[in-house]
Design a protein around this nucleic acid. Structure first.
Lengths: 231, 231
DNA sequence: TCAAAAGTGTTAGTGTTACACCCATGA
DNA sequence: TCATGGGTGTAACACTAACACTTTTGA
């Protein structure tokens, strides 16, 4: 560095990282919430969060917090927004950087979650959340809806192999509307990013349905022209 | 507050607000940059920025900074992203919350800008920027492209009354591609959010072209179904 | 064999693209 | 009157939405 050793004159702020963890369980979009047995707002529900440390980037901090809660690494993570109103935290001024993560619900470490008093809720039936966490969830759901329309992030929420009906249910859960089965699968298949396996999954249905998997390479080769599922 | 008077044990961070100011000048999208006559990186180009103060929200801080530079209030402002890498600022660790603003270039206070050594550059021909400001600009242009497709933010960049050709030029500047004149105006007019005045603007052309204005009320009444300018 | 879920096919309608053509006017 | 940029019309095509129909299999 060529600069003289001065420092800026400016106020300092504590910075929280709050994480919205979403998963998909057959029919519903679910969110992992923490029952707070600590102050402030002890006894109420909130997102999983923590404070940013001096030696970590924002992303690293979010990863650390998610690892503590789920035992998972390499999960889809995206910054949503910074919340910075003066009185958003009743104790003292804290900025909060909000991230959301998408996980395959079956990979989640139940025991670790229990130790943090974490519970999955259907997104539509979630309890009231503390502070401005409600806004964070709203912003995330909006972002997810937009993203899912032009990026294959939906697949982050499904197991390795999934049926067309599971994918359809996921999109119905994200958009809170129904899609025509025929039109939906035609559209998805026409993107050329799924591989059909010859396995069938029997469950609920009598006929059973084929399993597909998402093909990253094919996606990489077609993503230029963009991808539009709804709209 | 019902909480006990404790405070959190956590590291503190200085927080900068960096503002990307965009305007449109007939043909080109332009960005306002500061020639730094202060450390660090004196002599190079950067975005306009400042530090967040203890008594202001993030938005208020961005408004203050923009007011200092342009003399404008009530401008379109949107948070883009927080940049938080450990060494992003060579002097010491600073988080930066990046905002972008859209202004009508003719309202801008030239004299005030000069006093900060601010200059307009065509976005495509901007100089190299300091630190991670380049990334901020890229992220902003991407956001602007997305937004302009489904919200009428383009109108923030034009004067009160504008011709269809000016609007077309703006969209061409944002998307860096050309649009068919006929198809573009058909589509825009079909949205029903413009009012045609009977004034004509003569300039460049021999025939002259009609002036339109954006109608907020009409927009409010049709925005539910969403709006799609590019495919 | 019937009911239920998966999956295919058909069609009308809507939106998009490309491009030919007409209009008004200053030089 | 002609060159120029503004503006309109239209036909081909692609995509979408709605829904009827076929397939498979457990009960």
């Amino acid at each position: 560095m060529t600069e003289a050793n001065f420092t800026y004159r400016a106020d300092s702020f504590k910075v929280a990282i709050d994480c919205i963890l979403l998963g998909f369980d057959q029919r519903e979009l679910k969110i992992l919430l923490i029952h707070r047995n600590f102050e402030p707002a002890k006894g109420s529900w909130s997102l999983m969060g923590g404070f940013l440390n001096r030696d970590e980037s924002l992303n690293d901090s979010a990863k650390r917090i998610l690892y503590q809660l789920t035992g998972l690494e390499d999960i889809y993570l995206e910054q949503i927004f910074v919340f910075g109103d003066i009185n958003r935290d009743p104790v003292e001024r804290v900025l909060s950087v909000c991230f959301y993560a998408l996980i395959k619900i079956e990979d989640y470490d139940e025991a670790l979650g229990k130790s943090h008093d974490a519970h999955w809720f259907p997104v539509q039936k979630r309890p009231k959340l503390v502070f401005d966490h409600e806004q964070m969830v709203e912003a995330t759901l909006n972002r997810l809806r937009r993203r899912a329309g032009y990026q294959p992030i939906g697949f982050e929420l499904l197991p390795e192999k999934f049926t067309m009906m599971q994918l359809l249910n996921l999109y119905e859960a994200i958009y809170q509307r129904s899609f025509d089965v025929g039109n939906f699968s035609k559209k998805i298949l026409s993107l050329g990013i799924l591989v059909k396996t010859d396995e069938k999954l029997r469950g609920g249905s009598k006929k059973g349905s084929y399993l597909y998997s998402f093909d990253q390479e094919r996606y990489d080769s077609v993503k230029e022209k963009g991808f539009r599922i709804i709209g």
